[in-house]
C-alpha cells in the first residue's frame, strides 16, 4: 500500500492570534511493505504526520493519498472505516480502556464489523498468542505493566490484520530490555509485509538492518 504526502501543512489555531505551525509543506512517499522511522526532537511534528496518515485529523492544506485515495478529504465516518480496515495504530499512551480486560480491549476494533463469535475468538486468540499476552487475557489492563500494556496495544492494532502499522514513540515508556523486545516484534511484522511507520527519538531504532528508511523531521520539515 502506497502512502503519499503532498505539500502537507498543518496549522493549529489556538486562538485568533496565536497559532502553531506544526508541519510546513511536507511531501513524502512510503512504499508498500516499507518500514520507515520518523525521527526528530520532541515537538518537531512527527505525531502530527502519523495522525494525518491515520485520518485522525485533517491537514490545513495538502493531500494524504493512500492507495490512490484522498484520505485527507474523507468525511468523518468514511475516515473511521478507513482506519478500521487499514490502520493499526499503537499510540504513545497506548489509549487502552484500562477498566476492560485484555481480551475486551483487543475485541474493540472488531465490534463495528458485527462479526461472528467464531471469527472473533479466532482472531483475538491469534493476536494474543502472537504478541504473547494470552496468559493475561482476563486481566484488567490497568493491572498490567507498561510492557504488557504495549503488547495489548500492539495486539489491538493487529487484530483487524491492517496493511499499515503506525507506532508513536513505542519505546518511550519501556526499559531497554522491553524496547529491544519491541524491535523484535517489528522485525516480525516487517516479515508479514506490512507497511510500518514509527515515530521516535529513541536512538535504539537508528541504523537497524531491517529499517528501510530513516527520515529526520525538524520544525515541521523534512531535513
Amino acid at each position: 500500500m502506497m502512502i503519499e504526502l503532498k505539500n502537507l501543512t498543518k496549522i493549529y489555531e489556538l486562538n485568533t492570534n496565536d497559532k502553531v505551525i506544526a508541519l510546513k509543506d511536507i511531501s513524502l512517499s512510503i512504499n508498500e511493505g516499507e518500514i520507515v522511522v520518523l525521527k526528530g526532537s520532541s515537538g518537531s511534528g512527527k505525531s502530527t504526520i502519523l495522525s494525518l496518515i491515520a485520518a485522525l485529523s485533517k491537514p490545513t492544506s495538502g493531500e494524504v493519498i493512500v492507495d490512490a485515495k484522498q484520505i485527507s478529504k474523507l468525511p468523518d465516518s468514511f475516515a473511521s472505516v478507513y482506519r478500521r480496515d487499514n490502520i493499526g495504530f499503537v499510540f504513545q499512551k497506548y489509549n487502552l480502556l484500562t477498566n476492560l480486560s485484555v481480551e475486551d480491549n483487543i475485541l474493540l476494533p472488531l465490534i463495528p464489523l458485527n462479526p461472528s463469535q467464531l471469527e472473533v475468538d479466532a482472531k483475538i486468540d491469534e493476536v494474543m498468542k502472537k504478541f504473547e499476552i494470552i496468559h493475561k487475557k482476563d486481566t484488567l489492563v490497568r493491572n498490567l505493566s507498561g510492557g504488557e500494556q504495549q503488547r495489548v496495544a500492539i495486539a489491538r492494532a493487529n487484530v483487524n490484520d491492517p496493511k499499515i502499522i503506525i507506532a508513536d514513540e513505542p519505546t518511550a515508556n519501556l526499559d531497554e530490555k522491553l524496547s529491544l523486545n519491541f524491535i523484535e516484534i517489528l522485525r516480525e511484522l516487517k516479515s508479514l509485509n506490512k507497511t510500518i511507520i514509527i515515530a521516535t527519538h529513541d536512538p535504539l531504532f537508528f541504523g537497524l538492518d531491517f529499517i528501510d528508511r530513516e527520515i529526520q523531521i525538524d520544525n515541521g520539515k523534512i531535513a
Binding site: 491515520a54 485522525l56 468523518d76 465516518s77 473511521s80 472505516v81 482506519r83 478500521r84 480496515d85 490502520i87 495504530f89 499510540f91 489509549n95 487502552l96 480502556l97 474493540l108 476494533p109 465490534i111 463495528p112 489491538r156 483487524n160
Partner: peptide
C-alpha cells in the same frame, strides 16, 4: 470523552 475518542481512533464510526 476519552473513551469516545479512542473508539473512534480504532475505527468506530459515529453511528457505532
Amino acid at each position: 470523552k476519552r473513551e469516545i475518542g479512542i473508539l473512534k481512533a480504532i475505527g468506530w464510526r459515529v453511528d457505532d
